[in-house]
Simulated scan of single mutants.
Amino acid sequence: MSSTMVIRQPQPVMEVQGSKEWGSEICDCCQDVPECCFAFWCFPCFACVTARNYGECLCLPLLEAFSGCIPAVTMSMRASMRQRYSIEGTMCKDCVCSTFCTPCVWCQMSREMKRRNIQIVLVGAKYR
């Protein structure tokens, strides 16, 4: 009888000590002009890519076509991101921003993910 032992090595983890504020404002599109242009010219594609990068289903933003006057997917993604990154805010502000500035909210969320996604590089690590 043979048995297999699986060993999982600990992975390096870096916790972002960010502020409790968004890294950019809603209308800070000049911080990432190519991203803003992508969102302007092909918003459904941009929203789907951003949702996928966040870890959600690629097609989730397309469900917004079936919602009423309040974009529920955009609002819930923004609230989820606030909770994940410990950003202060209210559901009321999420609702207002999502309803009246939908493309700008998606651009802000994409910028925030880029800002908070710090790559970890191991220097001088030895592999056996």
Rank of each mutant, 00 (worst) to 15 (best):
C48V: 06
F100H: 06
C59Q: 03
A79I: 01
S110K: 13
S86K: 11
C59L: 15
R111T: 08
E56M: 11
M81C: 11
S76T: 15
Q83G: 08
V105N: 00
T102D: 09
A51D: 03
E64N: 07
E56D: 15
A51S: 10
T50A: 10
V49N: 03
M109L: 15
W106Y: 06
Q108K: 15
V96W: 09
V73R: 02
R82N: 00
M77K: 08
I70H: 03
A65D: 07
L60V: 02
M77S: 07
G55E: 08
V73I: 15
A47F: 11
V105T: 07
S76G: 07
A72C: 14
G55R: 07
V96Q: 03
V73N: 01
G55K: 08
C57Y: 12
A79N: 09
C69G: 09
A72N: 06
S80I: 01
C92T: 13
W106Q: 02
E56H: 11
F66A: 12
A47G: 03
P103K: 07
P103N: 06
C92M: 08
T74D: 04
A79E: 12
T74F: 05
I87K: 00
M91E: 06
C97K: 06
C104G: 07
R111A: 10
L63E: 03
S80K: 12
R82F: 00
M91L: 12
N53Y: 05
T50E: 13
M109K: 05
C104W: 14
A65G: 10
S98M: 03
C101N: 10
C92S: 13
R52Q: 08
F100R: 02
S110R: 15
F100G: 08
Y54S: 09
L63Q: 06
D94P: 03
A47K: 05
D94Y: 00
N53V: 00
G89N: 03
R84T: 03
Q83R: 14
C104A: 14
P103L: 05
V73K: 01
V105L: 01
I70G: 01
R111S: 08
M75G: 06
R52E: 05
Y85C: 01
P71G: 00
D94L: 01
W106H: 04
Y85E: 01
C101L: 15
C59S: 09
E88F: 03
C104E: 13
C95D: 00
K93I: 15
I87E: 00
C57D: 14
V49L: 12
C104V: 09
Q108G: 09
P103D: 04
M81N: 07
M75F: 08
G89E: 02
C48A: 10
A79L: 14
G89R: 02
C69S: 12
L63R: 05
L60R: 13
D94I: 04
A72T: 10
V49T: 11
V105Y: 01
R111D: 07
I70D: 02
